[in-house]
Amino acid sequence: MAINALGLFDAPSSALEAAGELKGAGFEAPEIISPIPIHGVEKVLGKKKNIIKRFTFFGALFGGIGGFALAAGTAVLYVHVTGGRPVIAIPPFLIITYELTILCGILATVAGFFLSSRLPAMRDRVYAPEAAVDKFAVTVECEDSEQFRRAHEILQNAGAEEIRELGGSE
């Protein structure tokens, strides 16, 4: 049974500081919940791997190939001549290819976003409603009350306005 510590800060710099200290103190993966994206998170919590770009790339690639296959394939399946053009007419099919490239790219990007950010979330997670307004929350998972005490201390020292003890998510 894990406990989560959550400290609310009124400024992003304080929150960052607190998160950095927690990380320095050996806590695993402290998180910052903020109403706006905070600049410089990477410096404190380390660079994140971005896998969305792969989704986008392969999605678009799939769309491109699939688009041309759709246009050319259906034309070959049911051959009929229009306007004296070849059955597989490259210029018009390129437009279909282009559009489907983008469509699949968009859809794959969204899928990548959802997968990598673990949304939509199906259960309650650590959260502070104030963090959606003007507070900046730092949360960290503690294995026992000892750890929680340490985290509490660090947060307190970093200038947290309020520190909450929240149930674990497991």
Binding site: I32, P35, P37, N50, I52, K53
Partner: peptide, 24 residues
């Protein structure tokens, strides 16, 4: 969708949004 505003979510959103913008 259960958005919390964690640093990871912001990061993903930023990139996803940027890619979308590039495609759009």
């Amino acid at each position: 969708l259960g958005w919390r505003g964690t640093d990871t979510e912001w990061h993903r959103l930023h990139w996803a949004y940027t890619f979308l913008a590039v495609l759009i």
